[in-house]
Nucleic acid binder design. Structure first.
Length: 897
RNA sequence: GCCCGCUUGGCUCAGUGGUAGAGCACUCGCUUCACACGCGAGGGGUCAAUGGUUCGAAUCCAUUAGCGGGCACCA
């Protein structure tokens, strides 16, 4: 007898199997020996090298791993590519922090040594998350791990840049950018966040030259008035019509600025007159270009006032300057009023510092050009397919319809250096290598652009670069386009859309067929989990507490739904794992003489009812799971597996098979029953494996009779048998048996009704009862007859009498079954008649309520006329059945009372 | 301001035109020889509100309320 512990210990299984799978190369697509196998590939959203695992990752990884394992077991040549992102700013800041502890700054080291230091940091501390992924059970191919700063991927980045430059879609020029005064770098619009903030709106009066008149403008940033180069009004605004073309004497400066007319100005807002600061506001910049206004830069890259702001202000912080400007206006009697005002403020997505819009010379990419192909594809073919389609397809499409230039350059040291060199005579050479640049420049005297590229620039290439692009590698040919991308919704613009752009630009093919957007996991109060709030739930702690498999089931169930995290859910899946463990424990304790795979060889007609029944349900479950996974409905897949295993297999099949399986004496029948139990269990473990890799492997290995036989043909001779290479059970329609299901159901109903009587009437558990069953249909009687042993055991009955219209002792508790059958349990003075009468009358009340509903429906001529006939007759049948039951109950009450 | 989504039992969530579901929690009974992380039996919801379409609405449409998301504006 094989004995295993009573309680499943996840840690033990988790510590063993992953290392073996990895060592044996099971994660690599090469394990598949089928030359014509279909291909399934996913690239992981590369986590930051600085990152550690959070619930969002765990959710994404679970989804990807479930599908990868499912496809692998289904015989696909499966590749899941892991890797990391160099995460420019984050990483640089992390290393600078470390340097600061040594009393150093990056400038003390210089660029080259600093970068060496970052690499060193990466080797020592980076990639925490990759170790954590192993714990998750993620079946990624570690032999294909990539890092965005690797030489090969860097080459791809340069290729991308040069290609786009030559095409004219990347340019170097002056533009309005978002500048972070703390991180000292330009940012793209996607790397800044808007936050609403309570502040003030200042109404400033500007004197009009040659008149007593003043124009009042409103601003939230008074300090920028020092850089004003115009006042704008709406051309149709009658209030200001006569002022257009007039000259303003800009206070606190001795500059004269014009009043201009521009449609941008909303006459309804503020005073209808707008101060224009082209150097420090994106809208004003655009207006400045339209009207050829000069740029007066009054704020520098440290958010301090420049010399151009005037001697009085030079060197002041922007907020000090703001106060001073306001004080000065007040002193001059030009401050009209200050009102409380809530407006939004733009902050650095990383450090939360308030962004300063600045004019700067940077590298830009014309995203509108690059976005055309993906826009056409989504509009015309709805590709890639977003799941859920609503709302993401639309969000993505709208984004592509409104593209603007992407600021590529970052004033950082860690990242891909921009492949542009400048000659002394001011030429710009963009080349793949410095040698090439020298050759083209005709001189060795070149200076490379000091800036690096936005981290998302290399990320945009991830699916093609990790597979080998720009080289025509085997991997690229086989695995591109990828099958699926799984990610969170907040990087649809930042990342997803850009991978589609590069994929289509360089290969003419979309980067992935489908995009699955996961839900967001909130804390129990509905708050987003975040480091700063400290409300995050650490997946590793959950793993420790409940096991990886239970956590994975929880996460898979979450899928694309926004959900508040709930430990109880994980706990219930932990219990499920324990249930699986104990079902297997039972099978193993009773496995002598039986073995997997030999259970159902006999003629099907010899299988007992519960065998035909469970095999039918097993195949339906395989079918349902297949369909659910095809639809990315992970919740449904988990539900189907959970209820099949627990309700059908454990609660009924194991109980029903006990008589044969745990018989004392060995016999061919016992061996066969044991084999059938083992076989169903083995198939169930395979079905569960993509979701619960550890416990399934742990148990599967122990089943008697496991061999290469169970492996998918593509993995025969792959090595030691492992459930992860077994073939995923496919539904066999010929084994789906509706008749067996309905017959078994009638037995289950009978047992449940009797148990209900026992429970409701407080019949002591030890008390043996007699059961009288009356069934008008011969087939039903036959089914009950063949199951008497089961029925007796599961209802703790001493005897069962089956007939048609049996004479039942007067003092009996009775229940009505389907098909006009009845069950009666003689009470023999065991219980209180009044109690039974009450129970029956409650039962009748329920039935009558339902009957009234159905009758009303049938007495509505509209319904009878217009509803489909099958619906009407269905209602009639149901009503008839209820009436039969009600009648039977009435008789029972008469008999008692 | 524009667009989108959500609102189902105490909690977390399924269900998208024809008998309201699950897990947890709750009640009752069980040391039944796989499992108390269990077994058996139960209770509990006018599906946010209003109006409409329909023979029939949790499900479709409209309006309202509350919550959430995206985009724009924010001088």
């Amino acid at each position: 007898m094989i004995e295993i512990p009573k309680t499943y210990d996840p840690k033990q299984a988790e510590s063993e199997h992953y290392a073996r799978w990895e060592r044996q190369g099971y994660f690599a697509p090469e394990i598949n020996r089928d030359p014509v196998a279909p291909v399934y590939s996913i690239v992981i959203p590369p986590p930051n090298v600085t990152g550690s695992l959070h619930m969002g990752h765990a959710l994404q990884h679970t989804i990807m791993d479930v599908l990868t394992r499912y496809k692998r077991m289904s015989g696909y040549r499966t590749l899941w590519v892991p890797g990391m992102d160099h995460a420019g700013i984050s990483t640089q800041i992390q290393v600078e922090k470390q340097l600061r502890k040594e009393g150093l700054t990056r400038h003390d080291l210089g660029r080259e040594r600093f970068n060496e230091r970052v690499w060193q940091w990466k080797e020592e501390y980076g990639g925490q998350i990759l170790k954590q992924m192993r714990r998750e059970g993620a079946s990624v191919d570690w032999s294909r791990e990539h890092f965005t700063m690797d030489e090969r991927l860097s080459r791809a980045v340069r290729e991308f840049f040069v290609h786009m430059y030559e095409k004219g879609w990347i340019y170097h020029g002056e533009g309005m950018i978002s500048w972070c005064p703390k991180d000292q770098t330009a940012l793209s619009d996607l790397e800044v966040d808007k936050e609403s903030q309570a502040g003030h709106l200042y109404y400033l009066q500007y004197p009009v030259k040659g008149s007593e008149r003043r124009v009042t403008v409103a601003t939230t940033r008074p300090e920028t008035m020092l850089g004003d180069t115009a006042v704008a009004v709406n051309p149709n605004d009658e209030r200001y019509a006569d002022l257009i073309g007039a000259t303003i004497e800009l206070p606190l400066t001795n500059r004269l600025i014009p009043v201009i007319a521009d449609d941008f100005v909303d006459p309804e807002f503020g005073t209808g007159a707008v101060k224009v600061t082209p150097a420090h506001d994106p809208n004003d910049y655009a207006m400045g270009q339209r009207h050829n206004l000069p740029l007066v830069k009054v704020i520098d890259s440290h958010a301090r006032m420049t010399a151009e702001a005037g001697a009085e202000f030079e060197g002041l912080d922007r907020y000090e300057a703001r106060e001073k400007v306001v004080r000065n206006f007040e002193a001059l009697g030009l401050l009209e009023k200050v009102v409380d005002y809530e407006f939004s403020i733009t902050k650095c997505g990383r450090c939360r510092t308030v962004i300063e819009p600045l004019i700067s010379t940077e590298w830009f990419l014309k995203q509108a050009e690059m976005g055309r192909a993906p826009l056409e594809l989504i509009r015309e073919k709805h590709e890639p397919r977003f799941v859920p389609q609503v709302p993401y397809e639309k969000v993505y499409t709208t984004w592509l319809e409104n593209l603007y230039d992407w600021t590529l350059s970052r004033q950082l040291w860690w990242g891909h250096r921009i492949p542009a060199w400048y000659t002394e005579d001011g030429r710009t050479i963009v080349a793949r290598t410095e040698e090439e640049a020298r050759e083209r420049a005709g001189t060795d005297n070149l200076t490379q652009d000091p800036d690096v590229l936005d981290t998302w620039f290399s990320a945009a290439l991830w699916p093609i670069s990790t597979l080998g692009w720009p080289d025509e590698t085997e991997d690229f040919k086989i695995f591109y386009p990828t099958s699926l991308l799984v990610t969170a919704r907040d990087i649809i613009f930042l990342w997803v859309s850009r991978m589609m752009m590069t994929g289509l630009e360089f290969t003419g093919k979309k980067a992935f067929d489908d995009v699955f957007i996961t839900g967001t996991v909130f804390d129990k109060h509905g708050q987003r989990m975040s480091k700063s709030k400290g409300n995050g739930v650490d997946p590793l702690e959950v793993f420790d507490k409940y096991g990886v498999d239970a956590t994975r089931l929880t996460l898979a169930s979450i899928g694309s739904t926004d959900t508040r995290w709930n430990d109880k859910q994980v706990e219930s899946f932990r219990n499920f794992a324990n249930k699986i463990w104990n079902a297997a424990r039972f099978a193993l304790m009773n496995s002598e003489g039986g073995k997997v795979g030999s259970g159902f060889e006999a003629d099907r007609s010899e299988w007992s009812l519960h065998d035909r029944w469970i095999v039918s349900l097993l195949n339906k479950t395989a079918r349902d799971v297949e369909q659910a996974l095809a639809a990315y409905d992970f919740y449904d897949a988990v539900q189907k597996l959970y209820h099949f295993f627990w309700d059908d297999f454990c609660d009924w099949y194991i109980e029903l098979s006990k008589a044969e399986v745990s018989a004392e004496a060995p016999s061919p029948e016992r061996d066969a029953a044991r084999s059938r139990l083992l076989t169903v269990l083995e198939q169930a473990l395979r079905l569960l494996h993509p979701f619960m890799p550890y416990i399934t492997e742990e148990l599967w290995q122990r089943l008697p009779g496991i061999s290469e036989e169970q492996l998918h043909p593509a993995y025969k001779s792959a090595g030691a048998p492992t459930v992860m290479l077994a073939s995923y059970p496919r539904p066999d329609e010929s084994l789906i048996n509706e008749r067996a299901e309905s017959e078994m159901q009638s037995v289950i109903d009978l047992i449940s009704r009797v148990r209900n009587i026992r429970s409701e009437l407080n019949v002591k558990p030890a008390e043996r009862i007699k059961i009288f069953v009356s069934a008008p249909e011969e087939q039903t009687r036959k089914v009950f007859d063949e199951s008497t042993g089961q029925i007796e055991r599961l209802t703790r009955a001493s005897a069962i009498f089956i007939g048609n219209g049996l004479n039942v002792p007067r003092a009996s508790a009775r229940q009505v079954l389907g098909g006009g059958a009845e069950v009666a349990v003689p009470l023999e003075g065991l219980i209180d008649f009044a109690q039974e009468l009450e129970r029956l009358s409650r039962e009748r009340e329920k039935l009558q309520k339902e009957a009234a509903k159905l009758e009303a429906q049938l007495s509505n001529p509209q319904f009878v006329e217009r509803a489909p006939e099958e619906k009407v007759s269905e209602i009639r049948d149901r009503l008839a059945d209820i009436e039969r039951r009600d009648h039977a109950l009435e008789q029972m009450m008469e008999a008692l009372g």
